[in-house]
Design a protein around this nucleic acid. Structure first.
Lengths: 135, 135
DNA sequence: CAGAATCCCATACGATACTG
DNA sequence: CAGTATCGTATGGGATTCTG
């Protein structure tokens, strides 16, 4: 499939910058594109998940990062925290409406990456992230 | 508009993790969602841009980060570097086909954020990024 | 089980200066 | 103009320990 060659200027305001340096968009973009933001958000797409579920789905995340990411995203209103006062504790996280909207536009990205990642990385010589120094 | 309640499992493999911990997808996702990745990529949507153009459009980026981001994205094959051996030097950066594909799925995200960012941040009390401490 | 609190390190990132 | 080289810092992020 071919993408229209015609740019969509609705976001790229004319010939100007994308997001002004300190506008809210930058903040939100940072939150979402934080190392674990996308993973967590997408992980919630299937419905409410418990803490431990999320930990397993976002493979490799530490507890600290999970907590922090969840709080940030909750603060942005992307997800909801639902704690039940039982023992042992049970807490469910689920996307808000706003969160679902966001994930809806996130999914194509994730899907595209999932589809093309292998050819991309193997072209670069897998493993090199930003540092390419070899001791 | 309402998003289908039915999840799209094509990416979220069943009840499993999103991206396996060390798969190429993670790498690419990290590159793209690096602090400046999205900005640079989207900035190139309008067509080839020169170094200085990019610097202005990705407001706030340092030269170091610009160089680094460009190299990473070039390494991934998302953009192409075209240096003309003239004086003063002139270098143009442009999206590859692969890059255009990526940006195509990136734009809806950026657009969505641009549209909703203000209400989101102002709900959180603007300014708080990750640290919320006030001296 | 679901976290909070600490400690600590790596590195992502920025500011500045230098160069072809 | 389009970078590279260095340096210094902040903070993102992991490992571990403690708790209700």
């Amino acid at each position: 499939m071919k993408v229209s060659t015609e740019p969509d200027p609705s976001v790229l305001q004319g010939a100007d910058g994308i997001f002004p340096a300190n506008c809210p968009s930058r903040t939100v973009l940072d939150h979402v594109s934080s190392k674990w933001g996308v993973l967590i958000l997408v992980a919630l797409w299937n419905g409410p998940q418990r803490w431990s579920e999320l930990r397993r789905r976002a493979e490799g995340i530490s507890e600290k990062m999970l907590a922090q990411t969840l709080k940030t995203l909750e603060g942005d209103g992307f997800l909801r925290r639902d704690a039940q006062p039982v023992i042992p504790p049970r807490v469910d996280y689920s996307l808000t409406d706003r969160g679902r909207e966001l994930v809806a536009v996130l999914l194509p990205l994730v899907a595209w990456i999932a589809e093309h990642a292998s050819e991309i990385v193997d072209a670069t010589a897998a493993g090199a992230l930003t540092t390419e120094a070899a001791p």
